Structures are given as C-alpha cells and as structure tokens.
Simulated scan of single mutants.
Amino acid sequence: MTRDKLVEWLADYIAELLDIAVEEVGTDLPLTALGVDSATTLVLAADLGAKLRRPVRPKEILEHPTIDGLAEYLASGRHEAAGVETAEVR
C-alpha cells in the first residue's frame, strides 16, 4: 500500500474510531493529541495489521506517533528490515 493510501486510510479510520470529523484529524499531529490512547492503539494495530495482511505491533505505532510518520514507515519497507514479514495489498 502506498504512503498516500495509508495516510488516507489512517485518517478515515482514526476519525471513525474516535467519532470526530476527518477534517479534525491532522496527519502531522501526535496520535495522542487526537485522543488515541493505549486501548485505541491496540485496536488500531490489529485492524491495520488486517488491512496490510501482516502483523503491526503497537510498538511500531508508538515509535511513529503521527499518521504521516506511521504511513511513511509502513510504506518504506523498513518494517521488513526489522524482520516483520508482509504481503502486498493493492
């Protein structure tokens, strides 16, 4: 999945999960500033993993705490270098 598609999916997902307008989701804001807490991070990791067809650890979300940063990380393939297997999703 491309970085831009991930940004779009994440913004829509966070808006729906937190019941806020997608316009309120700043992709450069820390997820915690948007209202993402530890429980939400676990849900996001599970659903994002299902979307990408590979495990997404909560630690990866915490280490890349903005939508822009997380999307860049996931699209870059750096997670593969860290030993996490992935399947391509179109």
Rank of each mutant, 00 (worst) to 15 (best):
L10F: 01
L18S: 07
E63D: 05
A75R: 02
A71H: 10
E60L: 06
H79F: 12
L74Q: 05
G49K: 14
A71I: 04
E72H: 02
D47F: 11
L62C: 02
I14D: 00
L6I: 00
D37A: 15
D12G: 12
A39D: 01
A15E: 06
L42T: 10
R90G: 07
L74P: 03
L62W: 08
R54T: 13
E72K: 01
E72R: 02
P30D: 14
A50I: 15
T66G: 02
L10W: 00
G83N: 13
A82N: 09
G49P: 15
A50W: 11
P58F: 02
L34T: 06
E80R: 10
D19Q: 13
P65S: 10
I61W: 00
T86Y: 07
A50T: 14
I20Q: 07
D12T: 08
V89M: 09
Y13Q: 15
G77L: 01
R57M: 13
L44Y: 15
I67P: 01
A21C: 06
E23M: 08
A50E: 10
V56N: 04
E80Q: 13
L52M: 15
A33N: 15
P55R: 07
E88H: 15
V56S: 04
A71W: 03
D28A: 10
R53V: 09
G83H: 12
V36I: 12
W9I: 13
G49R: 09
S76P: 07
R78V: 11
L34H: 12
P58V: 04
R3P: 03
E72F: 00
G49V: 09
D12I: 10
V56E: 02
T86L: 05
A71P: 10
L29P: 01
L62G: 07
G26W: 07
H64W: 07
D4G: 03
A33S: 13
S38T: 09
P55G: 09
D37R: 10
T40V: 10
P30A: 10
D28H: 12
R78W: 10
M1W: 00
G35D: 14
V36D: 08
E72Y: 00
D28G: 07
A39P: 00
G26L: 11
A39R: 04
D28P: 04
D68G: 05
L29Q: 13
A21Q: 07
A50P: 15
V7F: 00
V25Y: 03
R3K: 05
T32N: 12
A75M: 02
A75L: 04
A39W: 02
L10I: 01
L70N: 01
A15S: 05
E80Y: 01
T27Y: 03
A71L: 13
R57Y: 11
I20T: 14
E88T: 12
H79M: 14
L42F: 06
V56R: 02
Y73I: 04
A21H: 09
G77N: 04
G69C: 01
R57N: 10
S38Y: 07
L31M: 14
L31A: 05
A87G: 06
A81Q: 05
E60Q: 09
D19F: 11
K59F: 08
A46N: 13
H64K: 14
I61D: 00
T40P: 01
L42M: 12
L6Y: 03
W9S: 11
R53Y: 03
L44N: 08
L31Q: 04
T2S: 11
T41E: 09
D47W: 08
P58D: 06
L18C: 08
A21P: 05
T66S: 14
Y73V: 02
W9V: 10
V7W: 00
A71S: 06
R90A: 12
L62T: 04
